[in-house]
């Protein structure tokens, strides 16, 4: 793969640039649209950024679109962040503990417990959404952060990943810790969790984005606009009813909604890539 042939290099770069352009173009378009006035956007999106950027962003960040029932952007971003972070933290905590139990303890129905968790992998949120809604509604958790996050916390995928990782940790490490006088929870805290660091980072990124992008569930459990998430907010703006959707403001919101996941990925990138490719032992 270290051949030095100019034509080959050219083709490689051309393919990469083309691919990148295809991926980036819609985002670029959203950005361009967010820098023009409503009239300009509605007559066909221009290809170059305009000069309305500050006014548009100031408007979505400040007063919001009261006409279409969307709260200010800041509140929606905050709601999304609370939901995404609760889901991420909850999923990681629960799956770490449950895979610890499944891998390191012998108890009746251990295998059954694992397979029960594993089978739920095959059920997407949408399949169980009605019964879940019923439960959440009966518990009075509609229109609350708890209602937004708790039902999405159980995670078969993360449990499965941690189980696979724990099974690669050599038994001797557990035994050495036992001889060193570490009880199960001490072993978990002092040895297992630090060893899972890279896996934790990778899962954090994946789960944060999963939580951030939740659409259907927040739409169902929140009717109070002070609990709207950013993804819902965009939907509300686009379904503006009688009025023409204000595309320039919607695009500005979309760009703002894009930023937190990007920040998380950039921040975690090094650990994240290591967690995916390298098993540290």
């Amino acid at each position: 793969m270290v051949e030095r042939r100019p034509l080959l290099t050219f083709i490689q770069h051309a393919v990469l640039i083309l691919g990148a352009a295809i991926f980036v173009f819609p985002i670029y378009l959203a950005f361009v649209a967010s820098t023009h006035t409503a009239q300009e956007v509605n007559t066909g999106i221009p290809l170059l950024p305009g000069d309305e950027m500050w006014t548009n962003y100031a408007q979505v960040l400040g007063e919001g679109l009261s006409t279409v029932g969307a709260p200010p952007l800041g509140l929606m971003l905050f709601n999304s962040a609370v939901m995404a972070l609760s889901i991420t933290a909850g999923k990681i905590a629960i799956s770490l503990l449950s895979s610890f139990a499944i891998v390191y303890f012998r108890f009746p129905f251990r295998v059954l417990a694992f397979w029960t968790i594993f089978i739920t992998l095959m059920l997407p949120v949408e399949v169980r959404i009605l019964p879940t809604y019923e439960v959440v509604a009966s518990l009075g958790m509609l229109n609350s952060y708890a209602g937004l996050s708790i039902p999405l916390i159980a995670s078969a995928t993360a449990t499965f990943l941690f189980r696979q990782f724990f099974m690669t940790v050599p038994d001797e490490l557990t035994e050495a810790a036992r001889i060193d006088g570490a009880g199960p929870m001490k072993f978990f805290r002092d040895i297992l969790v630090p060893l899972s660091r890279t896996n934790l980072a990778a899962l954090f990124v994946i789960l944060f984005i999963y939580g951030w992008n939740q659409y259907l569930w927040p739409l169902l459990v929140t009717t109070d606009e002070s609990y709207y998430t950013i993804v819902m907010g965009i939907q509300r703006m686009a379904n503006a009813g009688e009025e023409t959707p204000q595309w320039h403001l919607i695009m500005a919101t979309a760009i703002m909604a894009l930023l937190p996941p990007v920040v998380v990925i950039l921040g975690m990138q090094r650990l994240f890539v290591r967690g995916l490719v390298e098993v540290e032992k």
């Binding site: 050599p170 001797e172 490490l173 035994e175 050495a176 810790a177 001889i179 040895i191 630090p194 060893l195 660091r197 540290e280 032992k281």
Partner: peptide, 13 residues
Amino acid sequence: ISMVFQNYALYPH
């Protein structure tokens, strides 16, 4: 007692 393992079982982190 203390034990020395074949693969040493040092805590990697």
